[in-house]
Amino acid sequence: MRAGSITGAAHLLGLTQPGASKLIAQGEELCGFPLFSRVQNRLVPTERAVRLFEEAERLFVGMEEINRLVGRLRSDGPPRTVVAAIPMIAQEILPFAAADWLAGVDAQLFVTTRDAGGVLAMVTSRNADVGFAMSFRRTPGVRSQLIARSRVMCAISTEHPLAAKAIINPTDLQGERFISISRHEGQQQKIDQVLAAASVKPKEVAEMPLIIGAAAMARAGIGITFADCFSARPWLGQGLVLRPFEPEIRFEYHAIWIDGAPQGRNVQTLIAAMRATMRAQLQSFGSGA
């Protein structure tokens, strides 16, 4: 699965190609179902094999993590704080907060990215000390804190006629090519409700749950989307503009954690650093906190 071929697998394992083939045959016999099918002289993993690989990878990663932990304990290294975050937060906000945070704590930072559901799962399973996501829904046993609200704006290519407007209203979007954002996380629903109330139907040409990716699509002229100063920042001044949208809509950013976690103090100082970073960026952008 990692090497993409029997030859590559044999090389990774230090075996001959027949030896690697024999291992696969033994694995299929133990599983009781085929792991690969042959298509044009290549082995293609079955759906069951893909699912098995994903679970096995978690186990191997877990064992590797235990080995690293033992190494840190042996060398008396600093404790590690594990952060799960949606990609936009990990890319656009966390690096600035982490720079200040790491300067004041004796800790090592490990960051993993997930969608909002994955962030929550990482925290509730105690595989992450703290998570950062949008529009958190109250969950038993999970603590949360609102760390920022940002105004939702229309993200538009500089070449689009609507870029000349100071404020965008729902009626401006009637029939316009439109890139929807995450319905799974509830961001697009907020926008859909406003558009439906105004009886406006833009022409949806793409769906990009990753807001920072939707902003990139808008920059490329594919259509109009909705973003805030965080998710649009990489493209501002590079062919993308943000225009205020009325009626006003807000995105919310939350920190989530489990009480009693070993990294409790470090978690709280990191949350404070994230909150301060986001508020400073909002004030710099001029949209307010």
Rank of each mutant, 00 (worst) to 15 (best):
T225Q: 08
I156R: 03
V267I: 15
M88G: 05
M208D: 05
F226D: 02
V83L: 08
V105N: 15
H11F: 07
I147N: 04
L13D: 07
G286C: 03
Q40Y: 14
I212N: 09
A196D: 10
I167N: 00
I86K: 06
E159W: 14
V130F: 02
S157K: 13
E207V: 11
S75M: 11
I86L: 13
D115A: 04
L210H: 05
I191G: 02
I179C: 10
F136R: 10
T16S: 15
A9R: 00
M208N: 10
S125P: 02
Q263R: 12
H160S: 10
R219W: 02
V82L: 06
S199T: 04
P170T: 09
L195T: 05
D76G: 01
G264Q: 14
G32V: 07
T81P: 11
P45H: 01
G260A: 13
P34C: 04
L173A: 10
P34E: 01
D106V: 09
Q188G: 08
R48G: 11
A206N: 04
F178Q: 03
E55V: 13
A98Y: 12
M134T: 12
T46P: 06
R2P: 04
L102N: 09
Q26H: 04
P18D: 11
E204W: 01
L23T: 08
H254V: 12
G221E: 08
A10R: 00
A84P: 08
P170H: 11
D106E: 10
E185W: 09
I24Y: 04
T139K: 07
E185T: 11
W101G: 09
I93L: 08
P161C: 07
I224S: 09
H160R: 12
Q145C: 09
K165D: 02
A227S: 14
I224K: 06
G32P: 12
L43P: 00
L146R: 12
Q174G: 12
S182L: 04
N169K: 15
R42N: 02
V70L: 06
A220I: 00
R51L: 08
G260V: 15
D100P: 13
R183P: 01
G4E: 00
D106S: 11
S287C: 04
S199V: 01
I222Y: 12
S157L: 08
L13E: 09
R275N: 07
P234I: 01
Q26F: 04
V119A: 03
I156P: 03
S21G: 09
S157Q: 11
P262T: 03
W101N: 10
V267D: 06
K201Q: 14
F245A: 01
G260C: 14
L59M: 02
D115T: 07
